[in-house]
Simulated scan of single mutants.
Amino acid sequence: MEHAQAITLNAAITLTAMSRRTLWRRVTLGHIATVGHSAASKGRTMLALRDVVTAATVELDAEEIALVVRADEGDAQAQADAGAMFFNKAQYKSALFWLQKAVVQGNADAMQWLGTCYASGAGVERDDNLAVMWIAKAASLGHVIARAQMGRVLPARSL
Rank of each mutant, 00 (worst) to 15 (best):
M1K: 14
E2L: 15
H3W: 14
Q5Y: 02
I7Q: 05
T8Y: 00
L9G: 06
N10F: 04
I13V: 12
I13D: 00
T16Q: 04
T16D: 04
M18S: 11
S19P: 11
R20I: 10
T22V: 12
W24T: 09
V27R: 03
T28Y: 11
L29W: 10
L29H: 13
I32P: 05
I32Y: 08
I32L: 07
T34K: 08
T34A: 02
V35Y: 06
V35S: 05
V35A: 07
G36R: 14
G36L: 14
S38I: 12
S38A: 12
S38F: 10
A39S: 10
A40E: 12
S41R: 04
G43D: 03
T45V: 15
M46K: 09
M46S: 10
D51T: 11
D51R: 04
V52W: 02
T54D: 10
T54E: 13
A55V: 05
A55H: 15
D61L: 06
E64A: 04
I65M: 09
A66S: 13
A66Q: 13
V69G: 07
R70T: 06
R70V: 08
A71M: 02
D72I: 06
D72V: 07
G74S: 09
D75E: 09
D75G: 00
A76P: 15
Q77Y: 10
A78T: 02
A78F: 01
A80M: 10
D81M: 08
D81T: 02
G83Y: 08
A84T: 11
M85R: 00
M85E: 00
M85Y: 00
F86R: 11
F87K: 13
N88P: 08
N88W: 01
K89Q: 04
Q91I: 01
Y92I: 06
K93V: 10
S94K: 05
A95Q: 02
F97A: 01
F97L: 00
W98V: 03
Q100K: 15
Q100G: 00
K101C: 12
V103W: 09
Q105F: 03
A108R: 03
D109K: 13
M111H: 04
L114W: 01
G115P: 10
C117A: 08
Y118W: 07
S120T: 12
S120E: 15
A122R: 07
G123D: 01
V124W: 02
E125W: 06
E125R: 10
R126I: 08
W134E: 05
I135W: 02
A139G: 06
S140Y: 04
G142W: 06
G142Y: 01
V144A: 13
I145Q: 09
A146M: 04
A146H: 02
M150D: 10
G151D: 11
R152S: 06
V153I: 15
L154G: 07
S158Q: 13
